[in-house]
Design a protein around this nucleic acid. Structure first.
Lengths: 353, 353
DNA sequence: ACGTTCTTCTGTACCGCTACAGTACGGCGA
DNA sequence: TCGCCGTACTGTAGCGGTACAGAAGAACGT
């Protein structure tokens, strides 16, 4: 069967193509009887609706929003687990409410195809990207409106972030209040520059990383606490476990972790060394992922609302699309106290070999 | 500045628009000097490449593939955790290698916007959908080529599945070989029809669910084992824990679980009741997610390669797009024996109150 | 009766690109 | 010298819609 177009329906009903178009896209432009008749005829012909590609060209909007992530999707998303999916879900659902869909913009694999250049989108959400992320320049050149999530603010691109620093401060203050004066920090190492766990120059400089570190240090330094900082990559987990072991050997009475996953590693390592949490050592996570409450003991951590972050990004983007001025968003964080932290046990150092 | 089009570049270089188009899309159609010159001029004008929307209309292909999921993305994906993300990642990466991108097809929220009808796509992957999933009919009417993943085969749509039944058989056989003769099954309840945990009519009838159940029963029945079946919904987890408790109270010496997450629930519940795993009760999971190896004890489970499943779906789709005959795919599963299973402890029933 | 306003439908001109069928011309074999 | 072929470039005709500015007639007020 030949392809069904607006024209073929118009011919069959005996009206102009424009009227058929209106029947689908601007119901107020024609009488409801005629519209009914047109829609019925269209249904008879098996016509579902105006061709989205043609409509996109004519209207100048495609109805999709790109999601740019750094590295292969597998790498960007899979390492951190559930919260990325939660973010993506929130973005998809919220966009859907605004009549749009998300398209994943993978990095360029070959010369011929480059999603950031070749995929039809109206706007883009930039997530988990660093300065070298390929695609950003192309999006910018195409004049695609963007927002970033969890990123150092870039000129001209409204950022959506959480109060990483405030959350970190609250976590550190919590430990200080519990009397901890020798505190370990397990932070994130830049995947691109592996190095010794205590080589702080290899620390990831992305926004959440540096903000969290800043928050911790502000409070710990002000309290004159001793700080032992160690860096670990997200994967493989075995490395994080080793680094955690090293950290615990430094005689700290508490550990502030970059993420719940890291905290999990510390818990496991502590157990393997016969250290009780929180009696011997307190542990604080970050993010309050599902993992946090499920661990044993349940983790004291800093909560962020990942879904809200995704929704805020969409809201900001929609506002931009509507011509409103871009505005930075910072979502609150909240310290959630569970059972992995308690008062400092004095003289833990003395137990060490 | 006015929008830069092929025509504006053509005018500036002094060639026809067609030649500029060829410079970008069919390099073999013009001399390389001219191409160089055109590309340079285009770069000067800030032209990134042909407009994807216009190209889509002219070529008749959009370069995106839809991913249809049931319910809001949040519901479909978030419940099961990591493996969905893994699947999506694999699909995105593999599509990217074929010059395409994934677009998430969310369900219809209002009359005006319906992704399955209104989003420009060349093909679709149907995942985690049931018969009532909205959107399927629209895709079919649009004549969009599809594949399903983890679904009961539908006429005209090539399915990509794993050998759920074989994996379940292997798991059950493993228990039988270990001497278990009273085995619990913790299967998945249909989210749409809540009911008593032992009301088997509320069992989910989707493909993986029914296949796994069939595999378990085949082997257990053949071995004349007693079987106690209980159903739990994916969420909330507390319900699964309750159901697991009930199951353990039935004096089973082993439990076959629909997923690793369920197995996790059984482990936790067992621990809470003072039952040692595997000494008092053996537990088998399904899927071999990251969770499985991380649990204590590490879980005996049935491995499936989720990423391979995603890649296979893309391969099948690409073949269909190329006009090849659709072909069903069944990927192997493999029993992974870890430390949550051991020989049946005789007379466990006697311990019960 | 006549101008005005609404409602309902139509005609034309694109949206920005690509497919395809040329045209022009230099080189090459006989 | 002529025909033939391959290479390099061009002209035209869409792809399937939508925006926008009419046009035609009915309804209405004075």
């Amino acid at each position: 069967m030949a392809k069904v177009t607006l024209q073929s329906i118009a011919d069959k009903v005996g009206v102009s193509r424009m009227t058929v178009s209106n029947a689908f896209s601007r119901p107020d432009q024609l009488s409801s009887e005629l519209r009914r008749k047109i829609l019925d005829t269209a249904a008879d012909l098996g016509y579902v609706g105006p061709d989205p590609a043609a409509r996109a060209l004519a209207r100048g909007r495609t109805g999709s929003v790109g999601m740019l992530i750094n590295g292969r999707v597998g790498e960007a998303f899979a390492t951190d687990g559930s919260s990325d999916l939660e973010l993506l879900s929130a973005v998809a659902d919220e966009l859907s409410a605004h009549g749009m869909a998300v398209t994943l913009l993978t990095p360029q694999l070959d010369e011929k195809f480059f999603p950031a250049r070749d995929v039809a989108i109206d706007a883009a959400i930039v997530y988990s990207c660093n300065a070298e992320t390929s695609g950003l320049a192309e999006l910018q050149q195409r004049g695609i409106p963007m927002v970033t999530i969890d990123e150092n603010p870039r000129p001209g691109i409204p950022p959506v972030n959480i109060d990483d620093r405030g959350g970190a401060r609250a976590a550190a203050q919590h430990l200080v209040d519990l009397g901890h004066r020798r505190v370990g920090i397990l932070a994130l190492q830049d995947a691109e520059k592996p190095g010794a766990a205590d080589d702080l120059s290899t620390m990831s400089v992305e926004y959440p990383e540096s903000e969290r570190m800043a928050g911790w240090r502000e409070v710990l330094d002000a309290a004159d606490a001793e700080v032992v900082t160690r860096l670990a990559p997200l994967a493989p987990r075995s490395v994080a476990a080793e680094v955690a072991a090293d950290l615990l050997d430094q005689g700290v009475t508490a550990v502030l972790c970059f993420s719940d996953v890291f905290a999990h590693g510390v818990l496991t390592t502590a157990a393997a060394r016969g250290l009780r949490v929180p009696d011997d050592v307190s542990v604080v996570g970050f993010d309050d992922t599902e993992l946090a409450a499920a661990l044993n003991p349940p983790l004291t951590t800093v909560r962020q609302d990942v879904a809200a972050k995704g929704r805020a990004a969409v809201t900001t983007l929609v506002a931009r699309l509507a011509g409103q001025a871009p505005e930075a968003v910072v979502l609150p964080t909240e310290l959630v106290i569970r059972r992995s932290t308690t008062t400092a046990r004095p003289g833990r150092q003395a137990d060490l070999p």
